[in-house]
Every structure is written in C-alpha cells, then in structure tokens.
Amino acid sequence: MKNFRNITLAFFALISLNSCSNDDADGQPAAVSGTTQITFDSKVGAADFALNTPFTISGQSYQFDRLRYWVSDVKLVSDKNETYALSNSFFLLEETTEIKVQDGKYTYPAQKREAIDLKDIPSGSYTKLIFSVGVDAIHNDNMSIQDGELSQLNGMTNISWMWHTSYIFSSLTGKNMTPATPVAIAVETGLNTNYRTVEITLPSALVISAGKSSKLNLNVDVEKIVKDIDLVASPKISAKTPELMTKVADNYKNTVFTVKSIE
C-alpha cells in the first residue's frame, strides 16, 4: 500500500512539473511565437522595377542602376494595442549593381533583396506595421556600433577625409536618358534630421501563430521617391541640397510604401 501511495504521488508530481514547464515564471501559459515575412516589392508606378530598364517619370526616360535603403526599428502593433519591437533590426533592402568600396579595395557584389524574415513574434493578430527608413542617431553618430546588418563595407556610408562619418539612409542612382548626352542622377538621404518613421495601418489583420507562415507584401513606388522633385533641374540630391533631401525623406515616410497584400 505504501509503494502504491508513493507511485501515485510521483505520478501527480510529474504531471505538475510538466504543467509548470508550459507556463512562464508567473505561472501564466507560455507565449507561443511564430514567424512572418515582409516583402518590399519595388515598382515604378504599375511596372515592376528593374535595373538598366527604361522608365518614364515626369516625361523623362530614366534607367536606374541602384535602389537601396535601410529599414530599421521594425515594430508590429496588435489588435490589443500591444507593440512587439524587433531588437537590433537593421535591414538593407536593395537592388544594385556591384559597388566599389574603400577606393576600390573591396567590391560589394550585385544584390537583389526585397524581403525580411521576422522570427519569434508572439502569436496574435497585428493591425499596424511601424518601421523607419534610415539609421537612428545612436548608430549613425557612432559607426563602431554595428548591430543587425550595419557595416562600413556595403557602400552605404559617407566618407570625409578618408573616414566613414555616417550612413547613407537611401540611395537611388542611374541616368536620365532623354538628353542627347545622358545625365547621371543620384538621389540620396542621410543625416539624423532625415531619419523617418513609417506607420502603416493594415487593411486586414496579419495573423501570426506557431506552425503557420504569414506574409505581408508591400509596394515600394520608386516614382514616389522623387515626387514633386525636378530631377532635370536637380539631378544630384545630397547633403548639399538639404531642402530636397528632406523632401525625399518625407516622400519615403508618406507616399512610397503601401500595402499590396496579406497572406
């Protein structure tokens, strides 16, 4: 009888231990997490974006060889108004030909990257996506802090007197092919004042749960990057044209990104 009682007690202890293992430190059920992918599908109006392909913008024919921008500080907001922030989230979205870095000592290869994968997200229904275009002041002012994908070897840094001084937040380069002699264009943003946060309210909930793959597809309209900007008069936009750079940064915040679909 004594042995039976000991076996019974051990049995219930095992059940209790197993139950506790599925709870967190407060005795509450452990949160179940899932994954999702966010795609950034580049377009020029309704056409798919491609390098070295003619596109008409404001009556001019352009061919691009580079589209690059930092997506950082990614957050998802649930239908319960709870915010999940992805730590160390610095992603370089790009479609580019190869780039010579450090006076040609290093070559950054041609790349195409239009998606980021988010892991270990608490299960739930998410109704808003928040992210920033650029690099926050802490990292931008101290390039020795290289979280996420930040690096000085990707050709997205400004160099002054042989020193890397800050990050380029976004870069769109190519040529205006309309003139008899094509004109090079370069549309860049940078500087802490042009760090922009994008907030997108989703038309339907993005549902994330364990064992289920979900996907949020965004349109990225390259034509909207240069909205209300005369590239004929100002083919080079940089820190030397601060008002135009700010206008480009505002375009990224307000008009460039829209929801394509939720899967």
Rank of each mutant, 00 (worst) to 15 (best):
I159D: 13
M162R: 13
W163C: 09
S166G: 08
I168N: 03
I168M: 00
L172T: 02
L172N: 07
T173Q: 10
T173H: 04
T173P: 07
M177W: 03
M177V: 06
M177A: 08
T178W: 00
P179C: 06
P179Q: 05
A180S: 14
A180D: 12
T181R: 09
P182C: 01
P182K: 03
A184F: 10
I185R: 04
I185S: 03
I185C: 00
A186E: 05
A186I: 00
E188L: 06
T189E: 02
T189C: 02
G190E: 03
L191Y: 11
L191G: 04
N194A: 02
Y195N: 09
R196K: 15
R196Q: 14
V198I: 12
E199Q: 11
E199H: 10
E199L: 02
E199R: 03
I200E: 02
I200K: 01
I200Q: 03
T201F: 02
T201L: 10
L202M: 07
P203W: 09
S204A: 14
S204N: 12
L206F: 06
V207M: 11
I208E: 01
I208M: 07
A210N: 14
A210Q: 14
A210K: 15
A210D: 13
G211T: 10
K212E: 14
S213V: 13
S213H: 12
K215G: 10
K215Q: 15
L216N: 03
L216Q: 06
L218R: 02
D221Y: 05
V222N: 02
V222Y: 00
V222P: 05
K224V: 01
I225C: 01
V226R: 06
V226K: 03
K227L: 13
K227G: 08
K227D: 13
D228V: 09
I229L: 13
I229E: 07
L231I: 07
V232P: 05
V232H: 02
A233T: 11
A233G: 10
S234E: 11
P235G: 01
K236T: 15
I237Q: 01
I237C: 07
S238N: 12
A239S: 15
A239W: 14
K240S: 14
K240R: 14
E243S: 14
L244H: 03
L244S: 03
K247Q: 15
K247I: 08
V248M: 05
V248E: 08
A249W: 07
A249E: 07
N251H: 06
Y252K: 02
N254Q: 11
N254K: 12
N254G: 10
N254W: 04
V256M: 00
V256A: 01
V256K: 06
